[in-house]
């Protein structure tokens, strides 16, 4: 474990806490894409299958369980909560997630480290996580004024992956033989997708104005 990876995990944890706080405090999920949340739950469930058969550390197990439960909780809020579910704008959240999930599954079946069920599903989760934020970014472009907490949520999500990039560079420099091409390439693409959001987020923050993404 290095500081970059720990900071990345904490940023990821914080992003989900910010999202849960926003939904719970405002009793509203306006601007939040249910599709992205469902994709994240699929990412966590397919990636953390090793919870069933291998133990790495208490930290590792706790964080995996937290990510699965918290994303499930967000989805419950948006789908079932009597007040919050009224604020979900399904007419705007229309990204065709199958256009993301199917190519990722086909790619996972062809490009992977091992052709076993758990390895293919794990690889699928790596590819899917790279594109899972797209429905959320599309929704932000459509809903003109993005509320601050939702903007912070997306910014923290991008920050977590950027910190993981630093973690991989650090591990390449300090751990001879450490190679994870699938994770590195997928993670770099994932961080690149955030770049234009980062640009508008920082610009709005510096000009002290509401964040709005150009459609």
């Amino acid at each position: 474990m290095n500081i970059f990876r720990f900071a990345g995990d904490m940023t990821h944890l914080l992003s989900i806490i910010v999202l849960l706080l926003k939904i719970n405090a405002t009793k509203s999920c306006a601007g939040v894409s249910l599709k992205t949340q469902e994709l994240y739950l699929l990412v966590f469930v397919t990636r953390y299958l090793d919870l069933l058969y291998s133990y790495i550390s208490l930290y590792n197990t706790f964080m995996k369980l937290f990510f699965i439960c918290s994303s499930g909780c967000v989805i419950w809020y948006i789908r079932e909560h009597k007040t919050v579910s009224q604020t979900y704008d399904s007419a705007q959240d229309t990204f065709r997630v199958l256009f993301l999930a199917c190519p990722c599954m086909i790619l996972a079946l062809t490009v992977n480290h091992d052709f076993t069920v758990t390895e293919v599903l794990w690889t699928f989760s790596i590819y899917l996580e790279a594109v899972a934020i797209l429905p959320q970014l599309v929704l932000l472009q459509r809903t003109k004024n993005v509320d601050t907490l939702t903007g912070n949520y997306v910014f923290l999500l991008g920050g977590y992956r950027a910190l993981y990039l630093l973690n991989w560079i650090y591990r390449i420099l300090t751990e001879p033989g450490y190679r994870q091409w699938i994770v590195w390439i997928s993670g770099t693409i994932q961080t690149a997708i955030y770049c234009d959001f980062f640009y508008y987020y920082i610009k709005s923050w510096r000009n002290n104005e509401r964040l709005s993404l150009p459609s």
């Binding site: 474990m1 590792n60 964080m63 995996k64 990510f67 480290h113 390895e119 973690n167």
Partner: peptide, 10 residues
């Protein structure tokens, strides 16, 4: 890489 590679990252 390959079978049994420890996936210690989240």
């Amino acid at each position: 890489a390959g079978r049994g590679r420890v996936k210690d990252e989240l």
